[in-house]
């Protein structure tokens, strides 16, 4: 690609992917119908680059596909056994750090974390469980917060701040102490101006931010990732 050219191509698992200047690897791949596993990235929001599930190998170097700009002629490895193995380990770390009990979670079947773990064939959390103590917040009349399942993707923080203009959520603490908090003196969701119609109310990829009274409106077995794996559903969504 010459300096003033606005398009180019790169190789993703040996397949040629076109891109326009400024597109990240994950944006170009998705537009071309190729799935790169991801949790904290959402097409409508600025890349966060924190979950590292989208780690790819570009010209032999590891990088996050959500923040790495596509370059002409770049050779990218995506679904290799080596990278999927690393991704599986990242998922296992997330599963043991929170309380992810799928059988009693109403998000089951619609959960991006669960669906990604299915796609990557995660059969066990492997590590010792943390079983953290994270009380739920059911104070809001229409919404429930179950912090046990938070993966710190910050999509709710972004949506509330950048779309809803409310700043209801934030992350607090560092390292293993990082956790999601509610921006109110009482720390209760009821004491914010959060609403069930907010973008942040429907952005959570896991089962933290839930609308009350509709949890099983769609039965288990008929949910987003029941018929087909997320690697297909995610791309199908892009094309509708």
């Amino acid at each position: 690609m010459s300096d003033d050219s606005q398009t180019g191509t790169f190789l993703l698992d040996d397949e040629e992917i076109p891109f326009t200047r400024g597109q990240t690897v994950i944006q170009a791949a998705r537009a071309a119908g190729k799935y790169i596993p991801h949790l904290c990235w959402h097409p409508d929001f600025k890349a966060h680059g924190s979950c590292k599930l989208c780690t790819i190998k570009a010209n032999g170097r590891l990088g996050a596909a959500c923040t790495l700009e596509a370059q002409d002629g770049m050779a990218v490895e995506n679904r290799t056994p080596e990278l999927d193995d690393k991704r599986r380990t990242l998922l296992q770390l997330l599963f043991v750090e929170g309380n992810h009990f799928c059988p009693s979670c109403e998000k089951s079947g619609n959960c991006v974390l669960q669906a990604t773990a299915y796609d990557l064939g995660m059969m066990t959390p492997h590590f010792d469980m943390f079983y953290p103590d994270r009380p739920v917040d059911a104070s809001h009349p229409d919404m429930l917060l179950d912090f046990n399942r938070c993966i710190l993707c910050e999509l709710c923080v972004q949506a509330s701040r950048d779309v809803d203009g409310k700043n209801v959520f934030a992350l607090s603490g560092r390292g293993i102490q990082s956790h999601l908090i509610v921006n109110a003196e009482s720390r209760r969701l009821a004491d914010t101006d959060f609403s069930a119609t907010d973008r942040a109310a429907s952005i959570c990829p896991v089962g933290v931010i839930l609308k009350k009274r509709v949890g099983f409106a769609i039965p288990i077995g008929e949910r987003t990732y029941d018929a087909a794996p997320i690697s297909q559903v995610d791309i199908a969504k892009e094309n509708t």
């Binding site: 309380n99 992810h100 009990f101 066990t124 959390p125 469980m129 079983y131 103590d133 994270r134």
Partner: peptide, 10 residues
């Protein structure tokens, strides 16, 4: 992963 009984762990 401990399942439902492990929900007494906290």
């Amino acid at each position: 992963n401990g399942g439902l009984p492990a929900q007494r762990n906290h």
